[in-house]
């Protein structure tokens, strides 16, 4: 089965400048699937992984991270709508100020938080449900164009049951005014952009503790 690629951004999207030299020119060659393509690393990697799903405390300092505490939850599904249990989700993100805990230099003078690493992982349960607790990431500037700012986002990586299930994406927050200005978000065809946006869900919000966001993830394969 050849997957319809129109739900995804193109390789080359000149408004996101770095794509210009890092995008293939030649057409992908369509192949049939062999056992290599019908399998994938998701199940075995999940077997060997454990949860580390509270980013507000996993720096191990004994003190809590600073910022707006949130819960993000939802289901991981296949394209038939079936749940994908025991799936590993790896996440990384900026802190509340918009700074990453990373060795790369940044000219953005926002503080690091010694109590926030910004990385974690969770596993889906039998119903495909995942849940993690974190700090709402702050927006930050980047060098793509004049006065460019990335909207608040969380990076996610999923392996899934087949090679083609591999998904790296970014989760955004409903109502963020920076979404309309972001070329990475807007590189995705208009009809599927909303699939990257988490909705505020008061049912998920835990009283006197954390605001709740709901977002489902659909893997191909």
């Amino acid at each position: 089965m050849t997957t319809d690629l129109s739900d995804h951004p193109p390789f080359r999207y000149p408004d996101y400048r770095s794509t210009i030299k890092r995008s293939p020119d030649m057409k992908m060659i369509e192949i049939i699937r062999t056992l290599t393509e019908e399998t994938g690393p998701g199940p075995i990697v999940a077997d060997l992984s454990s949860e580390d799903a509270d980013l507000t405390t996993n720096a191990g300092t004994g003190a809590a991270a600073i910022g707006e505490r949130i819960i993000v939850t939802g289901k991981v599904l296949d394209t038939y709508g079936g749940p994908l249990p025991k799936t590993l989700i790896e996440i990384w993100q900026a802190n509340a100020s918009g700074r990453y805990t990373h060795w790369r230099e940044t000219e953005f003078p926002a503080p690091l938080d010694p109590n926030f690493l910004g990385a974690g992982q969770c596993l889906t349960d039998d119903e495909g449900i995942y849940r993690f607790t974190t700090i709402k990431p702050g927006p930050y500037p980047w060098g793509n164009h004049a006065n460019a700012w990335r909207p608040s986002h969380i990076h996610l990586s999923l392996l899934g049951p087949r090679v083609r299930s591999r998904l790296v994406t970014q989760m955004y927050f409903e109502g963020d005014p920076l979404l309309a200005l972001d070329p990475i978000f807007n590189a995705v065809p208009e009809h599927s952009r909303s699939r990257m946006v988490a909705r505020y869900d008061h049912q998920v919000t835990v009283p006197n503790w954390a605001l709740g966001w709901r977002w489902d993830i659909v893997l191909e394969g």
């Binding site: 038939y80 709508g81 990373h102 970014q170 599927s192």
Partner: peptide
Amino acid sequence: MIGPTPSQTVGPYFTMKLS
């Protein structure tokens, strides 16, 4: 069929997690 979650770039900071 439901539509897949779109792909986004792994970005410059992935080694925080995907090392």
